[in-house]
Nucleic acid binder design. Structure first.
Lengths: 138, 138
DNA sequence: TTAGATATCTCCAGAAACTATAGGTTTGGA
DNA sequence: TCCAAACCTATAGTTTCTGGAGATATCTAA
C-alpha cells in the first residue's frame, strides 16, 4: 500500500494534482487508512501513469475520462479510441504548424537586432508594432 | 475618436479583452465621453495592434508590459528587447521539439489501430497505459 | 423630437488544470 | 514517547481571457 506521497514520487505527479484528479473523477476514490489517509495499490499507480502519460501527450481531462470509460467496456470495438487519438494528432500537427511560423518570424525579428542600438531604431519593437513588416500571416 | 467597439473591429480584439488589457496596465486608461464611455485615438490603435501582435506570437502579458516600458525609453540601447525576443524564440523551439515527439508517438498509436477490433486489444489504450511502449522520452 | 435599437458601462462569475496556503491530524522513526 | 514530516480538508489564487446581468449612453429613423 502506497501513500499519496509515494505515488507522487513514483509518477512525478504532484500530491495536490493527484487529489485534483480524484476530484475530477479520473482516479476513483482511494481506500483510506484508519487515520483517513489515502492508500493506493499497484492498479492506482498504473492508472495514474496512464493519466500522466495522456496529459503529457496533450489530451485534456475530458478526453482522458472518455478513454478510461471506453477502456472499461473492453468488448466494444475501439473505433472511438482511434477517433480520439486521431483528432488529437490533428491538433498536435496544427500546433506545430503555428509554432513554426512563429519561430520563423521571431528568428527574423531577432536577427535584425544586434542589441546595441537605440530602442527607437529597434526592429523588434518596430515589427511588433507594424504587422506589415511580417512575411506571412498569423 | 474611436469607441471601444470601433477599436475592437479594427484590431480584431474583443471588447471585454480591451478592457482587460486596460486593467492589466497594457493600455493606459482611455479618455471618456460625457457619458463615461471610452474614446480612443490613433495612438491607442497602434498600441493595441502591438499588443495583439505580441500575443499572437505567444508573448505573455508581463513580457509585453516589459517591452512597452522599454519602448518608452527610446534612447536606451535595445539589449533587453533583444533578450526578451530571444528567450521567447528559445521557448518556442522547445515547444516545437516536444510536440514533434508527441506527433510521432500519436502517429504510431493511430497506425496500429484500425478501429475495428475490441478495446482489450487496442494499441492506443495499451500504449497509453504502458509508457515503456513509447519510442522516446517526453 | 422622440422612440427604439444598439452599444457601452461596471461588476461578477466561469473556464482549465492545476498550485498554494491555512489550520489541523496522523504517521513513522529515534 | 516525542517530534518532524507527511497528510487531511477547504478555500483561494494563477493566467488570459470570455460571458452575463442590469443599468446607462448614443445613434438612427420616423
Amino acid at each position: 500500500m502506497l501513500s499519496i506521497g509515494d505515488l507522487s514520487k513514483r509518477t512525478g505527479v504532484k500530491v495536490p494534482t493527484i487529489r485534483y484528479y480524484e476530484q475530477m473523477g479520473l482516479l476513483s476514490a482511494a481506500e483510506r487508512s484508519e487515520g483517513n489517509q489515502r492508500r493506493y495499490e499497484r492498479q492506482d499507480l498504473e492508472r495514474l501513469a496512464f493519466i500522466r502519460h495522456a496529459r503529457d501527450l496533450g489530451l485534456d481531462i475530458s478526453a482522458i475520462r472518455e478513454l478510461i470509460a471506453l477502456s472499461q467496456h473492453p468488448h466494444q470495438p475501439c473505433g472511438n479510441v482511434d477517433r480520439i487519438a486521431s483528432e488529437h494528432l490533428k491538433s498536435v500537427r496544427d500546433k506545430i504548424e503555428k509554432l513554426k511560423k512563429l519561430e520563423q518570424e521571431l528568428e527574423r525579428i531577432v536577427s535584425h537586432c544586434d542589441g546595441d542600438h537605440a530602442i527607437e531604431d529597434c526592429y523588434v519593437i518596430r515589427s511588433l508594432s507594424d504587422h506589415g513588416l511580417c512575411d506571412g500571416e498569423h
